[in-house]
Write a protein that binds this DNA or RNA. Sequence first.
DNA 1: ATTAGCACTCATACTTACCGAGTGCTAAAG
DNA 2: CTTTAGCACTCGGTAAGTATGAGTGCTAAT
Lengths: 344, 344
Amino acid sequence: MELSDRKLKILSAVVNNYIQSAEPISSKMLCELLNLSLSSATIRNELAELTELGLLEQPHTSAGRVPSHLGYRLYINKLMGKYYLTKKSKEYINSILDLDEIDPEIILKNVTSLLANMTNFAVVCTSVCAQEDYIKNVKLIKFGKYTAMIILTTSSGLVKNRLFRCEILLRGNILEKFNNILVEKFVGVSLKEVTPAFIQTIAASLGNLAFLMTDVFDALFEISKLASKTDVYFDGQTNLLLNPEYDQKSAIKLMKFFNYSDDILDLFLLDDDNKTHVFIGEELHHEELDQSSIIVTKYIVDKVNYGVIGIVGPTRMNYTKLIANLEYIASLVGNKLNNILDGE
Amino acid sequence: MELSDRKLKILSAVVNNYIQSAEPISSKMLCELLNLSLSSATIRNELAELTELGLLEQPHTSAGRVPSHLGYRLYINKLMGKYYLTKKSKEYINSILDLDEIDPEIILKNVTSLLANMTNFAVVCTSVCAQEDYIKNVKLIKFGKYTAMIILTTSSGLVKNRLFRCEILLRGNILEKFNNILVEKFVGVSLKEVTPAFIQTIAASLGNLAFLMTDVFDALFEISKLASKTDVYFDGQTNLLLNPEYDQKSAIKLMKFFNYSDDILDLFLLDDDNKTHVFIGEELHHEELDQSSIIVTKYIVDKVNYGVIGIVGPTRMNYTKLIANLEYIASLVGNKLNNILDGE
DNA sequence: ATTAGCACTCATACTTACCGAGTGCTAAAG
DNA sequence: CTTTAGCACTCGGTAAGTATGAGTGCTAAT
């Protein structure tokens, strides 16, 4: 079914204005805004049909129109224009990100909080999904007579460390020996490969020594597991409280969802394409998020690896502007991490 | 001015019951609870005098009584009994903390979230305030042609790492040389001593080499600064939304305060004594916290060093129980960290 | 010093009324 | 066939009035 140009124009106007004002849009209001030299009655007819089609909704009989989820969907897919960031806001973003910082973890935390503050919504950001990550270096540092620390650095710039306890007395340069073995056997190994079975194989090749290294291997396994788990940075949850669409009750629900559910990340998983995606309300399939939308995109590192950055806010959000900001920041982050890892 | 025993008993009953019910306490209610074989009229007279003294308040003329800040203060200082944790809840706490984990950062994060979940309030916890902390080890790891990572471990078990960029090409074993110098010159040095001036002195003693190490020294300075800054773990902010005393508006104010104010830590600074402290409402001197109280205590590590753990909630909270839990957990954490650092 | 009794206060809930923004529909005009 | 003026209708929001009942303060008797 085809929609007339006029209908599309009207729908577009409703969405744009509702995003601004948070109030249902009336026929009279549209009359003024569109200056199509049409009477409000005509607009009303059009609105009625758009409502019939499920693209608009009425909070109650005597209220103006509000976009439905379908309406938003159409708007996002077809109608909304492209937003171009002002030079000023680009500069602002650059000024925050262009610090000398080259630690990926810190950069990503900064990005998350920057975006949360700029948008006044909640922001989720993941570390680089370490599909192809391998062990770049591993260090053992003596800490006490029976305690040591293992520090693992990966090809994607991640550093994880962990204290662990050894059953055997760590005297002399025994840790150094262990360290040499770890380096020899594990540097260059993909994180995914570091399984108990794999470690077992290595251990077997070491004869008696392997027995002394049980705790070291355990620690290596744990730290590898940790390093291959995607980190999730989450900021600005409380920003959502400031939005009129969330009353106390739904805000509480939302917060609980964010705090107790471990699978927020699932919401941000994307297909293979590198486009920005928008999920609206019910499309998220979580009752708590029916009034919320998510905009999510990838930042690409090293051509194949990537992380995701996403914004969570009420369905009534300024999609064009947010998408522009998000994509700009994602591209910056991608570049930045690329530069760092290029090992230049 | 002396208060009769009976008055104290009544005040105590008001606080105890108000903590439970969150509703103003009436004279009739007290009559039943106290079974002093007094009529409600007598109680009313007593209540009037306690109100006169500023220990109780009335939300409005025809409502029951609620403790004032002064009332809470008296209750906490003099009246409340000691709460003994049940074996079961001790066991519960132990079961969560007695994991094999020996990484201080992870332990403290766990403690913070455990306490937040147990109490349903917000919890703040600091890392060990590193007054006496010194550099235990420092490592340089090559990362790219011009990038390296510095990893600092301190005597209190802290590990901080940071990527940094070098102007000079990092070829051969040059980093190893630098590393040896750092270890030789800086291991054992107190974190507080690592100032630009101190570094300058060291550099001067190295002659030409110092020039090549500029970036390394910068990185060392940055990472020392980072390591000597107390970490603050904060959890359960959104729990506060669940409390009836915070309506949308005050909750928003509170969240803003928590998010944007860097000096939350100030609220938790304590004197030299090792007792648990309670700050009630206005005593905190922050308008946003007028309806809130803080309970805070120290965990002691190594006899002299300590960190703090604190609970933030509405003034109407179960002080005895919370104090008991807090102190128990603090002592566990102290012991645990002691064991780890004892280097056994 | 204690208590029964009573008038008084005030938050809460419920009803009623009214306003006005906005709609849907109809019938006339273009 | 499209557009529009006009009008009745709907319904959320606000305000004002009313009843209810829990709880108080005070007085006078015990």
